[in-house]
């Protein structure tokens, strides 16, 4: 899939996946790959910067713990993040509907000069 298509909607995808329970970075990225049927397969290290930006925006929160002797970070969605995800979902849905209508072409009689 084209990277710019993914990049434009990555915030929504991450908010939804983290909101559904995937908390550890690796689990989030794996879930993204599996749910998309392998279509969304980003270099894994490039997803973390987006997670950090969402955290700076207050849409995600994170905490560190120690597992197997390593520091491990887990993410969760904030209340503000849930609202943002809902808004982005509606926005994307409206956009996809609009694109679909454009692709399907005008209905006869709805365009001036159409005969």
């Amino acid at each position: 899939m084209r990277p710019d298509l993914v990049r434009g909607n990555l915030d929504l995808l991450l908010l939804v996946i983290v909101g559904d329970g995937a908390g550890h970075g690796y689990a989030i990225i794996e879930e993204l790959r599996q749910r998309s049927g392998g279509e969304i397969d980003l270099p894994e290290g490039t997803v973390y910067p987006a997670l950090h930006r969402l955290e700076r925006a207050g849409l995600l929160a994170s905490s560190w713990d120690t597992s197997s002797g390593r520091r491990r970070r887990s993410y969760r969605v904030t209340a503000q993040g849930k609202k943002a995800a809902t808004a982005k979902r509606h926005e994307l849905s409206a956009f996809m509907n609009a694109v679909q209508r454009v692709i399907e072409g005008p209905t006869p009689g709805t365009v001036a000069g159409w005969t």
């Binding site: 290290g45 930006r53 925006a57």
Partner: peptide, 25 residues
């Protein structure tokens, strides 16, 4: 290999930081 090269990951971090957050810090 799946994670991405160090320069690529570093550029992604720099770019995302430059994209800013939902508010102007």
């Amino acid at each position: 290999a799946r994670f991405g090269s160090a320069p690529l990951v570093a550029r992604a971090h720099t770019a995302q930081a430059a994209m800013g957050s939902a508010v102007s810090t």
